[in-house]
Each structure stands twice: as structure tokens, then as C-alpha cells.
Design a protein around this nucleic acid. Structure first.
Lengths: 133, 133
DNA sequence: GCTTGAGTTTACGTTAACGTAATAGTAAGT
DNA sequence: ACTTACTATTACGTTAACGTAAACTCAAGC
């Protein structure tokens, strides 16, 4: 019932602010598999969603190979319901890793806060807004 | 008054589980500047602390060039108290970026949770622990 | 019919962050 | 004196993730 709207490569490049080369590279690496109309690539919403996941993965520091693993697992979870135990193991591994990353980020954010207030204090002192004397 | 205990390159390599090459590379890139006794490198607690910061930076996906920037800013904040305004700007930029990364991680964690419970459901169903029928 | 603007493939180039020899100095133990 | 352990420098190699250039196709507009 829903006329699947299709996207061109430039559509996605513009939407996600990446180059055409990047998208072609991701296909070359088997991360997405757009349809073809002649030679031209055509992307579905599903391709778009995968691309979004890929970029999010990149932002949190995952390698493309790891991202592909995860994407495959998504498919696996859709299709076969077995292997779920193995999948669960992989998921919890990844989860642990991400939680560590989060802690790192929190630690850095805390340090930044400290530095910030330190700076503010210095500036206040230099601009005359003294409290002590 | 405090006899600064010094570390050898292997000390730090062992402590942080990195290679000697990595440490030498960081020096080559100007991220740390250990003293020399003859040719041999000797690291202070300050060097050690910097190394810790470097590795934490790496874990949250910063490039060495960015880490160097930040380390420099730490020095700057120690020495000159001016430029603090510029520093504040840089800090808030970095903060914003880190918060985005955190959100990404949270999003991924949430998706993992979903996938996990999905898996558990599937497994329960397959092993007979049905609820509905 | 020609140009423009999308898209395509092929293939070599590039950067970061080390790995990996090869070679050599130096201090300690036997 | 010889080996072992730790250190050093020099320098070429490697992997990931694209960049970039060259050369081509194909439909649209004038």
C-alpha cells in the first residue's frame, strides 16, 4: 500500500553530510546494498536507516568492521530466532564496552567542569570581582 | 621534600598495557617530554598523569592532535591565567561534542536493551516458557 | 548537437597511529 | 668475558577509511 519512496546517492549524501565516495565505499564494504536501476544506485528507507546506524556507530568510535557485525546481528535477530544466545553474549560484551566509554566521557566532562570553574575564578579575580579581600 | 620517584618506559608500558613503541611515539609527537639520564628516558608522576589523560582521550575517540591541544590547554591554564576566555570557548565546544557522544552511546545502549529483551523473549518461547497460550 | 549535471567505475594517493625489524649501546649477574 | 635484560635510534611496513583524479555513460535542456 505504501509507494516506497527511493533516495538517490546525493540525497543521502546531503542529508547526512557525507561524500558520495563514502557511501559507495560503505557499499563496497558490504554495509549497505542499494538496488540498481541500470547502473544507478537507488536507496530505500531501510538503506537510509542502516546508514544512520553506521554513522552513529562511527561517532561512538566503532570500526566499520564492528559496525558490519552489528548490522548483521540485526538481520540475524530478524530472520533466524536461534543463535540468540550467541547474540546475547555479543550484545552484553558491546554493552560493557559502551558503558566504559560512557564513564570515560563522564570523567572528562567532570574535568572540563573543574577547569571551567577554575577559569572563571581566574577571570573574576583579574576583572576585580574578588570575594576574599 | 619529596623524593620524586621516577618511572622507566617499561614501568609505564606495563602499568597502562601499551607498547614501548607507543610511548616513544607519543614523545615523538610532543605529547610527553620525559627527562633523560644519558639516553634513557625517565618519567615523573607528571608524565604518568599526562599519559593517563592521553589514553583516556583515545578511548573517547579523540585524535592525538586533539589530545595534544587539550594537554597544551592544561598547561596554559596553569601558567598564564589570561587567554582563559579562549580556553573557556574551546572547553565548551569539546563539552558539547562529548555530550553528543554520550547521547549516541545512550541511544545505542537503549537499542541493545531492546534487542536483548527481544532475544530473551524468543528464547523463552523456544524453550517452552510461554505466557499467552 | 552540444553542454551541463547527475551518476558510474577504476585505481592510485593519503593520513594517523602505531608495528616491526635491524642494529647497537649499557648495566647487571655469573 | 659472556650472556641476558633493558634500553635506544633509524627506518620501512601496515591498516582503515576514505580523497582524488581520470575517463565514461546517460538523460535533460537549450
Amino acid at each position: 500500500m505504501s509507494e516506497e519512496r527511493l533516495f538517490t546517492i546525493s540525497d543521502l549524501a546531503r542529508d547526512f553530510d557525507i561524500t558520495l565516495r563514502t557511501i559507495r565505499f560503505y557499499e563496497e564494504q558490504g554495509l549497505i546494498e542499494p538496488q540498481r536501476e541500470g547502473r544507478q544506485r537507488l536507496f530505500t528507507h531501510r538503506d537510509r536507516a542502516r546508514l544512520k546506524l553506521i554513522l552513529r556507530g562511527k561517532r561512538i568510535g566503532l570500526a566499520l568492521s564492528e559496525i558490519r557485525e552489528i548490522l548483521d546481528l540485526y538481520e540475524l535477530a530478524r530472520d533466524e530466532a536461534s543463535q540468540s544466545l550467541k547474540l546475547l553474549q555479543l550484545l552484553s560484551d558491546r554493552k560493557k564496552q559502551l558503558e566504559e566509554q560512557r564513564q570515560d566521557i563522564d570523567a572528562v566532562l567532570a574535568e572540563i567542569d573543574t577547569l571551567e570553574s577554575h577559569c572563571r575564578q581566574v577571570i573574576d579575580t583579574m576583572t576585580g570581582k574578588e570575594t576574599t579581600a
